[in-house]
Simulated scan of single mutants.
Amino acid sequence: MVLKDNYWKRGDNSDGVTFKNATNYILTSWHDFFLPQTIHDYFKMQREGKNPYLTIGPWTHFDAAQSGIK
């Protein structure tokens, strides 16, 4: 995601997704408003030689945050 405004840029942590060498497990959903940025970060980690895990499911962002994935 390209953030063109400095206001939004300060909340963009995309540059830090490849900083760590720990295993990354990314959990999102087809209905999550963060989905585009999550997929962007996943591919960025792959390009940097990381081996992230990605799960995209049918739940919503609220469902996952409030009750866990079942």
Results as ranks from 00 to 15, higher is better:
T18Y: 05
Y42N: 03
S14A: 13
R47C: 06
F34D: 07
I39V: 14
T55L: 13
H61T: 06
D41N: 15
W59D: 01
M45V: 02
M45N: 00
G68T: 09
S67P: 00
S29C: 14
T18M: 07
L35G: 06
T23Y: 01
Y53W: 08
H40F: 12
K20G: 10
Y25R: 06
R10E: 13
P58W: 09
V2P: 09
F43R: 09
D12S: 03
K44P: 08
Q46C: 05
M45P: 03
R47Q: 15
D12A: 05
K70M: 07
G11A: 11
T55N: 12
I39C: 02
F19E: 07
Y7L: 09
Q46D: 02
K50Y: 01
K9H: 05
H31G: 00
W8S: 09
F34R: 04
H40K: 03
Y7D: 09
P52S: 02
T28D: 13
V17I: 15
P58D: 14
F33D: 05
P52D: 04
G68H: 10
F19Q: 11
L27Y: 13
H40E: 03
N51T: 11
I56A: 05
T38N: 02
G11Y: 15
S14Y: 03
N51C: 01
Q46H: 03
P58Q: 12
F33T: 04
T55K: 14
Y42K: 04
Q37Y: 01
W59C: 06
D41F: 01
Y42H: 13
W8F: 13
P52E: 04
L54Q: 10
A64R: 06
T60M: 01
T18W: 04
D5C: 04
P58R: 09
D63W: 08
H31E: 05
S29D: 10
Q46W: 02
P36R: 07
H61W: 02
N6C: 02
N6W: 01
S29E: 11
G49P: 05
N21C: 01
Y42L: 10
L35P: 10
F33W: 14
E48G: 05
F34I: 03
V2L: 13
Q46E: 14
Q66E: 11
G49Q: 12
K50V: 02
S29R: 06
I69N: 12
S14F: 00
N24R: 06
